[in-house]
């Protein structure tokens, strides 16, 4: 009998590794916990003492600015001590294994690891290793692993959608772009289906849709104009040039013409539809500047909400 490795004996969240299989009540608990954190900016002292004296290690084996920074801000607003390690440039290049690195940091009394890795499953491996070593008081939060998952991005997307649209059950959400390489898309799709979103659509050229996408409960559209019709939420994905291998696309210009979000294409969605993007944006490739900066864009609020959501995740796992 295999238990969900991120949940404890009583179903409490011990690690956050993926949104796949995470019960709706756990997701709702995280989103509810994030709400009061969002107003912390009004204070003289923009901190609460929940994680005072805890050491949070940001283990980034892969580059990131936004995710690492917002995790750092979240941990600092909870009064934790944050240690940033840019591993790509240190021990592993000298030959140390991932788990040796983890053991060394545990010897420095780490309480939590925020992990980004180019290999799918790396955070899961660390969590299992900690359990095997009897260090179940040390927690792991996945900050993006390979093509697998980016659960805090999925959660902040869910938070944003709930903030503007209240209830998932009547919504049509379109995810547009490079779904093949996108852990953001995978996490969001799992989250949206768990929260009983009425319809999730994936809009992309055939070459950027993974096989058996429909098995996740989504509708695949290769024609953007057809897929955007009457949507409540449009989530644009970045065209991941650095992950492109082989000729998956004719050219960025051709892609923009067919799939780039312009005012003309957005007009097919509902009049109050919101536009999201996990960042960083490629203006003129997947999104047109007037849309990115327009009244329906909630791309910058997503970043702000991301801090509150990460605070909620860190404070929930730290207590379990």
């Amino acid at each position: 009998m295999s238990r969900n490795p991120q949940l404890g004996r009583n179903g409490e969240l011990v690690h956050l590794l993926t949104l796949e299989g995470l019960p709706a009540e756990v997701i709702t608990h995280i989103l509810d916990t994030a709400e009061p954190f969002a107003s912390l900016g009004e204070r003289d002292v923009k901190k609460v003492p929940l994680l005072r004296g805890k050491a949070v290690f940001n283990l980034f084996f892969e580059n990131s600015t936004r995710t690492r920074t917002t995790f750092e801000i979240a941990a600092k607003r909870l009064s934790a001590d944050v240690i940033n390690l840019n591993i790509g440039a240190s021990s592993t290049s000298k030959g140390e294994t991932l788990l040796d690195t983890v053991d060394n940091l545990c010897a420095m009394n780490a309480d939590m690891f925020v992990v980004r890795h180019s290999q799918s499953g790396a955070p899961h491996l660390i969590a299992s290793h900690l359990t095997a070593m009897g260090r179940s008081h040390v927690h792991v939060v996945n900050a993006g692993d390979g093509r697998h998952a980016h659960p805090t991005q999925g959660l902040l997307d869910l938070y944003t959608i709930r903030h503007y649209k209240k209830d998932f059950r009547g919504l049509t959400v379109a995810i547009v772009g490079d779904v093949l390489h996108s852990r953001v898309a995978r996490s969001l799709i799992h989250g949206l289906t768990t929260m009983q979103t009425a319809q999730v659509r994936v809009i992309a050229p055939r070459t950027l849709v993974p096989a058996q996408m429909e098995a996740l409960g989504v509708k695949v559209c290769n024609d953007a104009r057809e897929g955007l019709r009457d949507c409540d939420v449009v989530v644009m994905l970045r065209l991941q040039n650095e992950r492109m291998k082989g000729a998956l696309l004719p050219s960025p210009g051709e892609y923009f013409k067919n799939y780039g979000l312009t005012g003309e294409k957005l007009a097919l969605a509902k009049p109050d539809a919101i536009v999201m993007h996990p960042g960083p944006m490629n203006r003129g490739v997947e999104i047109d500047t007037p849309v990115a900066d327009g009244a329906r864009s909630v791309i910058l609020p997503q970043v702000t909400f991301g801090i509150a959501v990460r605070m909620a995740v860190l404070s929930i796992v730290a207590a379990n």
Partner: peptide, 27 residues
């Protein structure tokens, strides 16, 4: 709402739905 400042956080964790502290005057 004192949820974030309690000394029993490590024992009993964080309650969901902490209310929003609101002090509409200059402290």
């Amino acid at each position: 709402d004192v949820s974030y400042y309690r000394d029993d956080y490590a024992l009993s964790g964080l309650k969901a739905n902490a209310k929003r502290t609101a002090l509409p005057f200059d402290v």
